[in-house]
Every structure is written in structure tokens, then in C-alpha cells.
Amino acid sequence: MQMLPEQLINGLIIGSFYALVAMGYSMVYGVMKLINFAHGDLFTLGSYLGYTILVFGAGWVTATFGIWGGVIVAVLGAMLGIGFAGLILERVAYQPVYRAGRLPLVVSALGASIFISNGIMAVWGPRFQAFPEVSIPTGSIVLFGDFRITTLKLVTILVSLGLMGLIYYLVERTLFGAAVRASALDRDTATLIGIDFRKIIRFVFFVGPSLGALAGVFVGLNYTRIIFTMGWTYGLKAFTAVILGGIGNIPGAMLGGIMLGIMEALFEGFVSGAWKNVFVFLILIVILIVRPTGLIGEKIAEKV
């Protein structure tokens, strides 16, 4: 009976992608009370950026430092690029309409989402792109029994868990993190006690999208195939993970993402693939009925 641990690990991999994307949603929501609909598309853009680096720029890196060298360059390049794309997005699409209330912000977010995904389609084309086979690390190891996992997947899990831990530490245990949490709690008071709110916004709009870009490049490396609409699929699942864990709260997003991935794998593996999404969203509804703030959501009292 090795099916159970096997499916748990499958779920952990799917879940870490959801969690990485979900953290970006949650960070922005926490500080700005804005659902950044363009986040899924920044994730896609990150994937395409990584693809472009691997196809055009990283040839000599791969040749000089080996295949993992190329991967590291692609990942860092995409994270940096999409971090700045996040900053530009905030400056162009959100900052001008902050004072206009929440509805214009949401409309602006939807517009940005459509703009980015159509921009990707215009630049890279509407067909599937495949990450170049030569720059994807191969090799796999046997974990237990005859359960084989590719080295790349193992690296994916370790990197995402490591990064999640780092962000958790940064936000929950440092002074800067306290400022981020204070801004999320009450923006006006935070400003009064001397926290630079603009700086906090720039932080979440840089870190959130670059985590998404990391997930994007790893999706491309693991599954080869990328398409300009994939931000929608991942964005929806990640958003679900955010709600499941408790919106606006970073550990909640991680937990929600990983739980969602594991529930999907278990249900698909043991019950029925056709009914997977029905089941997953049913659980979401039940959790929201029992705990409307999500699994470890913000305490309402704190916000008053």
C-alpha cells in the first residue's frame, strides 16, 4: 500500500505551485484589500520570460555552468523581471485609482489581467510553447518502493518550501515584517506611527509577483508546455487556496495551497478524476460555512 504516500507527494508538488501563486494574492490583499486579478497573468508572464531566457540567453550559461546553471539564471531572471513588472503594474494600473474607491481598483485589475494575457498572446503567439528539452534537467530518484520522482520535482518542492519559510520568517519575525502586518491591520495608524506605506506597497508588489514568476518557470520546467491562458487556471486555484487558508494572511495562503493540492491528488487517485473539482469546491464551501474567515483567517476583532 504505497499509493497513499505516493499521492500525498503528488499533491504536495501541485500544492506548492498553488501556494507560491497564492502568497502573491494574499500579500497584496492583506496590504491593499485588493484582489489582484492580474497576478495569474504575471505568473504566466514569468513562465514566458523564463522560457525566453532559456531559449535565447542561457545557451552559454548552460554550456559553461551545466544545466542547473541555466535553470538558476532563468529562475532569477524571471523573478527579477516580474518583480519589476509588478512594480510597474502597481504604478500604472493601481496607484492612479487608489483614491477612487475599491470598485475602480478591481476594474483596473481586470483590465490589467486582460492586457497582460493578450500582450503575451501577441508577442509569443496563441499556440502552446514548449520549454527546450536540452535545458531541462533530467534524472530521477526512487523515493520508496517503485515510486520514482524526478530530481526537478524534488528541487521544486524544496525550493518552494524554503522560499515559503523565508517569507514567513520575514513577515512574521522581523521588524520590517511587523510594519507590513501593521499596514495590513490599519493603514492610517501605521502611517501615523511612521511606517512608509508606499514602501510596504512596493515590497508586496515586488515579492508577490516574483514568487509567481518562480512558480511559472518551475511549471514550465516540470511540465514543458506553457500557454498564454494558463494564468487563469492557476490563478483560480491559487485564489481558492487563499480563501481556504484565510485571505490576507501569508501562512494561511501556504497552508491553503498545499491542502488544496493534496485534496485534489487524493480525490483523483482514490475516487474519481472526473469529479475532482466538484469535490474540492464542495470542501471549500463546507469550510467557509463552518469558518467564514478561512482555516487560519484574520480575526475579525483585530480589524475594528
Binding site: 499509493m3 503528488n10 508538488i13 511549471v219 516540470n222 487524493l266 483523483e268 487517485g269 472526473a274
Partner: peptide, 17 residues
Amino acid sequence: YDAITPGESDYSAVVSQ
């Protein structure tokens, strides 16, 4: 005899099965 969900990227749960 079952279905997969089109449009996803990770089918490892089905593959394990």
C-alpha cells in the same frame, strides 16, 4: 474508466493510479 480535467499541467495523481 474515468476522465481527467483538461487544461491542467500536473497529472501525476492519475499517473500514479
